[in-house]
Design a protein around this nucleic acid. Structure first.
Length: 564
RNA sequence: CGGGGCGUGGCUCAGCCCGGUUAGAGCGCUUGGUUCGGGACCAAGAGGUCGUGGGUUCGAAUCCCACCGCCCCGACCA
């Protein structure tokens, strides 16, 4: 490809609205252009990268026996109503105004419908189906360039099995395939246990790339392989336990003492035995949640414990329900509440909590004696430095970008859509499903996040838009041009993708800066200076290493570097 | 949806607070010339409904109101 005729709008200056390195560089290097918030056009250079990533995905999916489909993005809304996901997605689902259609944000429903129509027997199973398709999600706030957009490419696959044991196998195949896909894409990543959320199902894991700009937070252990999304992460934090015999419950006057720290200070005790009361509304049911001291309630864990999403009660409703304002609420004598507590408080005694009367607390509370607890659950958010639940090593809390998510769905969708099969005994059973997603743009953005410097992108060989960036330093010098053209032709003949900067009247410095910005793995620089000795210079983008070699050896050197 | 910021040639921005010539700069673009190993130089040019609508005023890029768009933080996030 000759740069003189290639559509490649590069920018010398940083676009004003990009903050992340990958976002800045993708725009500057002419990979993408924004069309609207969260909507990007892929220009020829960017699309080359996209196709390479997609090809890696295809190869690894095909290798586990997956079959590629291409399903419609326009879906009848009825199908989504059947699984209850019109409501579950809410405003995130794009609706078509003049037809009862929606723009698909994912494809469980459609794939399951195909399975329901055509898979009738255990003999038809298992199946692994996938597609690489545009998804539409009306994100409340698109951000970070292509990382969170309203329209994006996703590789989504679905497995159909006879049993949960076979699902484990299909899930395992995906897990291994994903590792290969990300490794081949040149990413450093880790895998975490994850929250399944509205997808439902019996378990899920996320593939993560550590990044200060990540939207997810994970607890990772550097000693063993424990890593978990903070939504589900746990640690070895000790239970509060029992402290001797319980004294009789007693009221304590605590004027203007509200926060846990204030109470601890006022009563001259540690925060641990202060049972903090939080009030949530779970679908109309009032729930009181007890946490030890300053432990932070994790709302994802709460949703898992309750089996539904709960929202923090508004302050004005608190007084109505409990007779006290925030800071004075407690579990003892509380009516019409479901009371649950964090595991750290299991069977604890000698606790202090609100008295449901402003400016009063109760002391010597024994959860076994004084309160009817509906259950103890792990509800707290793990904090930096707590001990790994596996090995006891200190956990690190890091931000991360989610690049893939694999789910064991079970029968949620097959049951809702009646996708059943007949087993060996002739009994009708719901197909056991898994679903697996990869954000294709995120692979590209994360690759750039992990491979760039101040001058530009440093593409890894596997997904670089071109293998070689060839630049002739001076297009007015016929010998230089002739030598560059020769290299260009030889590379093309060798089947090596080469971008040839043959632009006239562009200064050498400009060409070098563009080459570094665009970031091909190898630069071939043909200039008068070296050509006098019959030499041509190679520059390796990732290391910055330069090598001057005889013109005749250029192709060989490149082949050696590209390992082909 | 809450909080904050921004909107002026293709890009990055100044001008706005304190209203008053033909609205500026750098980069990019066009033409001619010079240059040619790290974003060259000279000269001449083209290019702007100052986001949109309304208002105040003799006069609005500038002040006021509304709306739209974009970015950041939060909420949300299969």
């Amino acid at each position: 490809m000759r740069l003189s005729t290639y559509f490649l709008p590069t920018l010398k200056e940083n676009p004003a609205d990009a903050t992340m390195a990958s976002h800045r560089l993708m725009v500057r290097a002419g990979l993408v252009r924004p069309l609207a918030a969260g909507i990007y056009s892929w220009l020829p250079m960017g699309w080359r990268v996209m196709k390479k990533v997609m090809e890696i995905i295809r190869e690894e999916m095909d290798a586990i026996g997956a079959q590629e489909f291409q399903l419609p993005a326009l879906n009848p809304i009825e199908i989504w109503e059947e699984t209850g996901r019109v409501e579950a997605f809410g405003d995130t689902l794009f609706h078509v105004k003049n037809r009862p259609l929606v723009l698909a944000p994912t494809h469980e429903e459609i794939f399951t419908t195909i399975a329901k129509d055509h898979i009738k027997s255990y003999r038809d199973l298992p199946q692994i189906w996938y597609q690489i398709q545009t998804k539409f999600r009306n994100e409340p706030r698109p951000r970070s360039g292509v990382i969170r957009g309203r329209q994006f490419f996703m590789k989504d696959s679905y497995t159909f099995d006879r049993s949960f044991e076979e699902l484990d196998k299909s899930y395992g195949l995906h897990r291994e395939a994903y590792k290969k896909i990300y490794s081949r894409s040149g990413l450093k990543f880790f895998i975490v246990g994850a929250y399944s959320g509205a997808m439902g199902g019996t378990g899920s894991q996320e593939f993560m790339v550590e990044s200060t700009d990540g939207e997810d937070t994970c607890a990772v252990c550097d000693n063993c392989d424990y890593a978990a999304n903070l939504e589900v992460a746990s640690s070895k934090k000790e239970p509060v336990g029992r402290a001797g015999d319980s004294m009789p419950v007693g009221e304590i006057h605590t004027p203007n003492v509200k926060t846990i720290d204030q109470v601890a200070e006022f009563l001259k005790m540690s925060t641990e035995r202060l049972a903090k009361s939080l009030v949530y509304d779970a679908d109309g049911e009032a729930v009181l949640i007890l946490m030890s001291g300053n432990d932070q309630l994790n709302e994802s864990k709460l949703a898992t414990a309750l089996g539904k999403t709960a929202y923090a009660m508004q302050p004005e409703d608190l007084a109505k329900l409990t007779g006290a304002n925030a800071g004075s609420i407690g579990p003892v004598g509380l009516k019409n509440f479901r009371i649950i507590a964090d595991k750290r408080l299991e069977d604890a005694n000698e606790l202090v909590s609100g008295a449901n009367k402003d400016d009063y607390h109760l002391g010597h509370i024994d959860l076994k004696r004084d309160v009817k607890i509906d259950g103890y659950y792990d509800l707290r958010t793990v904090e930096e430095g707590e001990e790994c639940p596996n090995c006891g090593h200190k956990l690190r809390i890091v931000n991360a970008i989610e690049i893939g998510h694999i789910f064991k769905l079970g029968t949620k969708y097959s049951a809702a859509l009646h996708a059943n099969y007949l087993d060996v005994a002739g009994a009708e059973k719901p197909i056991v499903m898994g679903s697996y997603g990869i954000g294709v743009e995120r692979i590209i953005a994360c690759h750039i996040e992990q491979n760039h410097d101040d001058n530009g992108i440093k593409w890894g060989k596997s997904i670089a838009p071109f293998d070689v960036h060839l630049a002739s330093v001076n297009m007015d010098n016929q010998e230089v041009v002739a030598a560059a053209e020769k290299v260009f032709n030889e590379l093309n003949e060798a089947g090596i993708d080469v971008l040839y900067d043959d632009r006239q009247g562009v200064s050498p410095g400009f060409k070098f800066k563009d080459a570094d910005l665009l970031g091909m793995p190898v630069q071939v620089i043909v200039g008068e200076r070296n050509l006098k000795q019959g030499n041509i210079e190679l520059k390796f983008r990732s290391t910055g290493e330069r090598k001057v070699v005889p013109a005749a050896e250029v192709i060989g050197e490149i082949k050696k570097f590209l390992a082909i």
